[in-house]
Computed example of a mutant assay.
Amino acid sequence: MEIGVPKETKDQEFRVGLSPASVRVLTDRGHSVSVETKAGVGSGFSDADYQQAGATIVPEAKDAWNREMVVKVKEPLKSEYQFIRKGQLLFTYLHLAANKTLTEYLINSGADAIAYETVELNRTLPLLMPMSVIAGRLSVQFGARFLERQQGGRGVLLGGIPGVSPGKVTILGGGVVGTEAAKIAVGMGAKVQIFDINVERLSYLETLFGSRVELLYSTSAAIETAVPDADLLIGAVLIPGRNAPTLVNRDLVAKMRPGSVIVDVAVDQGGCIETLHPTSHTQPTYVESGVVHYGVPNMPGAVPWTATQALNNSTLPYVIKLADLGMKALDSDPALAMGLNVSNYQLVHPVVKEVFKDLVARTAEFSMT
């Protein structure tokens, strides 16, 4: 199969869809890989590294996109829509529930789009997990940074010092992101609490953290009590394929102390904090109601050397199957089949279809005419 790897275009997104090591595996199996020049530089991979792995370096994005399968990291931006074509296989993060424009374009293009974040194996999301681990850890790292006075924060050291109380970190969601955030926050010496609606998950977290983390069942009343006292509030809620529910409204944010920080890792699925909207690595924060808001949707892009390799470790087996078998790979791999979001002018993922019922109705009407 002909595989294309374009350079990412999202603001300061330095990850790359395939590492040279992954390219070597694919070329050894007889596949051809075309990599846009300098696509891997941000992750520490030169064009020469890719050439040694058997790839062809192409000068422009259109050359990498003009292939049977395109492997990326982040969703296509509007400048890339022109390259998507009928029958093409696109394998990347999509997060369509928060992006109706892209969803509509993919449907109209006739491409087959498989989203990393909806590939599901034994009720886990294996291609989302490595980036969730990184994003969870970074959420506290960035939160600690923006709590610094020079960054607009309260001037709180999360770990405190003897004689001075540590900062308080409140985490909404006890999944992979929330767990990893708690590990870093506990390591820094902060006071940490996690909210979740799954009692079994809370029990599991107790085996990890013991009494070092306060584990609370998530209710509106409990959240309303905790949020105003938080120095760092982390949104870590994920519902696969759907927008994240709003757990903290505008009025509650206004009750937080000036200079407190909010980091919403769920921002690429709409976010769970009402006042938070997507930002970028170039302009990562803004202040609303006196609170510093951080909403970068591609947080792992800040550590591309680590993130690219972690992502490839998980995606490569699926890339190999798709390269070897094309769309027939979905027939023998139910996990990969769950990743299919758009195919043959149709929105096919059941959860995303629920989000965009109007698009489903429109395409159904079109197919009958």
Rank of each mutant, 00 (worst) to 15 (best):
A185H: 02
V186F: 00
G187F: 05
G189E: 12
G189H: 10
V192H: 14
Q193M: 08
V199D: 07
R201E: 10
R201V: 08
L202D: 03
S203G: 10
S203E: 12
S203W: 13
L205P: 02
L205Y: 01
E206S: 12
T207V: 04
T207M: 05
S211W: 15
S211D: 15
S211V: 10
R212T: 12
R212L: 11
V213H: 07
L215Y: 11
S218W: 00
T219P: 01
A222Q: 01
I223L: 00
I223D: 00
E224I: 04
E224H: 06
E224Q: 07
T225G: 15
A226V: 04
D229V: 12
D229A: 15
D231R: 08
L232M: 04
I234G: 02
L238A: 14
P240E: 13
P240Q: 13
G241R: 13
R242I: 14
L247C: 00
L247G: 01
N249R: 06
L252W: 14
K255C: 11
G259F: 08
I262P: 10
I262K: 07
V263E: 01
V263A: 02
V265N: 05
V265G: 05
V267R: 08
Q269I: 13
Q269T: 15
G270K: 09
G270A: 10
G270Y: 10
I273C: 14
E274T: 12
P278L: 03
H281C: 04
T282W: 03
Y286S: 07
Y286V: 06
V287R: 11
V287T: 14
E288D: 13
E288C: 05
V291I: 13
V291S: 07
V291L: 12
V292T: 11
P297Q: 02
N298E: 01
